Simulated scan of single mutants.
Amino acid sequence: MKLPKLDLSIQKSCKPAMLGRMWQASRRALNLEHSPAHQFACSQWQSSPHPSTVYLIYRWLFFVSVVSIGVASFSCQRLPRLYEGPKVELNYMKWFIYFTNWGYLLIALQAGLALAVLHRYRAQKFNSPCEEDEIPIPLGRRARTPLLCRAYWLSHNIATDLAFVISLVYWALVHDPKIHEVNALNVLVHGGNSLSMLLELAVTSHPVRAAHALYSAGAGLAYGVFSAFYWAVGGTDRIGRPAIYPALDWNKPGSAFGFVALCAVVMVFAHALATFVAAARTRLASRMRARNHADRLALPTH
């Protein structure tokens, strides 16, 4: 009769411990701590742990290109060529109400932060390789990842997911041939954004954690809240319509809520794609290094 009581007491004591381990695992998955921190300043394809000159050139070219396209998008605003509605005067500041431009600002932000991280670590010397530590170290026993690196990692994750979702949603649901022109600038901000972040995923060396999808989904929900507030105070789009996007018309709250929820779900799948690309990049680079190392160790055949 005593054994069941003992088993029951063990089960009761195990529950808090199990919940504690689940909480710690969730906390580790969601945090923005990563070691070594200088991995954020490196490319996956360099052999040295020190930030390379080639990667520095790439980072500057990427930053200048993204900022130039963003400036062109802001300064070249005009009514659609096929627009036949009443004459309206464009308010350039309404550029900031569009989800596309939120996403593009995040691409520019992460590009600037990546450049700042690289310059921070370029003057330092490292003996450890620019790869993730294989043995996990408890958070309390290691130095925290610098705020600059955490800010870059967060903005990179969100910018990547937003770019994929923006390209998909725009061409599938938003683009209207009667209003929107298919020109170079339109293609760059609604297609080039995703290509840019795919390039970033292929070049950078830091990981993409699956749990960080919550941050991107939160960013999408934040835009939904903004659009509802903007509608509530009487805001209009650039040609005077009450909804920023036809699919996000808060005069029809049911469909608007559904659209926001759909975007949040798609954001999670977009993050899954980013996680897969980053993992494939890491595995391919590891195989190439192992093959090159084996070739150097191979004995001559003559």
Rank of each mutant, 00 (worst) to 15 (best):
31 N>G: 03
32 L>N: 02
35 S>L: 13
36 P>S: 10
37 A>H: 10
43 S>L: 05
44 Q>N: 06
51 P>V: 09
51 P>E: 05
60 W>R: 14
62 F>Y: 11
62 F>E: 13
67 V>E: 08
67 V>M: 11
75 S>C: 12
76 C>P: 00
79 L>T: 09
80 P>D: 09
80 P>R: 09
82 L>W: 01
88 V>W: 11
89 E>P: 03
91 N>M: 13
93 M>W: 15
96 F>T: 10
97 I>G: 04
103 G>M: 03
105 L>K: 01
106 L>V: 02
108 A>I: 01
112 G>D: 00
112 G>S: 04
114 A>G: 12
115 L>N: 07
116 A>K: 03
117 V>N: 01
117 V>I: 01
117 V>W: 00
118 L>T: 07
121 Y>F: 14
121 Y>Q: 03
123 A>C: 05
126 F>N: 04
126 F>Q: 05
130 C>M: 05
132 E>Y: 03
137 I>Q: 07
139 L>E: 14
139 L>Q: 12
142 R>V: 06
146 P>V: 12
146 P>H: 10
146 P>L: 11
148 L>I: 15
149 C>F: 05
149 C>W: 03
149 C>R: 05
152 Y>V: 01
153 W>T: 10
153 W>A: 15
157 N>T: 15
158 I>G: 10
158 I>V: 15
158 I>S: 09
161 D>F: 04
161 D>P: 00
166 I>C: 11
166 I>M: 08
168 L>G: 00
171 W>G: 04
172 A>P: 00
174 V>Y: 09
